[in-house]
């Protein structure tokens, strides 16, 4: 039971990170119907910018807790801003010229962008794994029990609290953005019918650009979380995380924002529980198999709207 609780906490943390990335996929898919393959790499770029910002600010674990939080907020804003520029540029260069083209075209440029971004970061920052000393340490012990192997304590670390709380706050803000602001309104309009939205005075190009900007910013948050949680990043983290996050988006029902979050949490939980109870090596196999099974029996995902076939 204690072991289960611990895995649940770890799974929720991982799932939050996946969920934040998945939102970028689901938004882009919802609005222009393409798999933004480079999104995982935007997440990686966000993590790198966060790493650079943290190193530049030069803070260590001994700084006071108030200062750390302030500095982390600054890092968060920096990496969101810069990653947003990346998201905007990728859309502008690789996707906008192909709007209205046939569907495989933007997929190919997306894969090309993904390869280019990975190798660009590899050249600029080096291929070696970048370690970061833990910034946020400590945590709470929830329960302690004696087992035959000794004391087993269920730990909830401060960094896990930070990740889950930040995700919840961001998700709330984001839902408000979509529901209440004019950007959210035009976004939903474009999602339903791009041509009609354009006729009614919505600037479609601008809305799509902003979608990429918002998605990239959220991916950058996930990047910072990933960096703080695992303490190591390299130029390749974007691919695996990207595929998992896309899996999460599809699992939750692509195009649906709560679905993306739910899918992210589920993928995180499946992965953690599988590693905890079975084998670590096959955790990705477990996540992908669940995806295949869900899609076969529930082709529109958990919360997605079923597609209507029009003749």
């Amino acid at each position: 039971m204690e072991y289960f609780l611990q895995q649940l906490i770890n799974g929720l943390t991982l799932g939050s990170i996946y969920g934040l990335i998945a939102i970028g996929y689901t938004m882009v898919y919802g609005i222009i119907g393409m798999i933004n393959f480079a999104h995982g790499d935007i997440f990686m770029v966000g993590a790198f910018i966060a790493l650079i910002a943290i190193t530049a600010l030069g803070f260590v674990a001994s700084t006071g807790i108030g200062l750390i939080i302030l500095a982390l907020m600054l890092v968060l804003v920096i990496s969101m801003l810069f990653a947003a520029v990346y998201g905007w540029t990728v859309e502008r260069l690789a996707y906008r010229p192909l709007r209205g083209s046939f569907r495989l075209a933007p997929l190919i440029t997306a894969i090309g962008m993904s390869i280019a971004l990975q190798n660009y970061v590899q050249i600029a920052q080096g291929a070696r794994v970048k370690p970061l000393q833990p910034i946020i340490t400590g945590g709470y012990t929830i329960t302690e029990t004696m087992t035959e192997n000794g004391l087993f304590a269920v730990q909830l670390s401060n960094i896990q609290i930070l990740i889950i709380v930040t995700t919840v706050i961001l998700m709330t803000l984001f839902s408000l953005l979509i529901a209440k602001t004019s950007l959210g309104r035009s976004q939903r309009a474009c999602e339903q019918d791009r041509k009609m939205a354009a006729l009614l005075g919505v600037n479609v190009d601008r809305t799509i650009s902003l979608t990429f900007v918002v998605g990239a910013a959220l991916a950058a948050v996930a990047g910072l979380m990933f960096l703080l949680y695992y303490g190591v990043i390299d130029f390749y983290i974007g691919f695996v995380a990207g595929v998992k996050a896309f899996t999460a988006a599809v699992l939750g029902g692509i195009g649906s924002l709560p679905g993306a979050m739910l899918g992210g949490l589920l993928i995180g939980l499946i992965e953690t529980f599988w590693s905890g109870y079975f084998t670590v090596e096959y955790k990705d196999v477990a996540a992908f198999s669940i995806l295949a099974i869900v899609l076969i029996f529930m082709p529109s995902g958990l919360l997605g709207k079923p597609e209507v076939e029009k003749v």
């Binding site: 260069l93 075209a105 090309g112 390869i115 971004l117 990975q118």
Partner: peptide, 14 residues
């Protein structure tokens, strides 16, 4: 190489 490869993919497609 791989950087150029990726950019080439984007360029030819656009």
């Amino acid at each position: 190489r791989m950087l150029i490869f990726g950019l080439l993919m984007v360029f030819i497609m656009v």
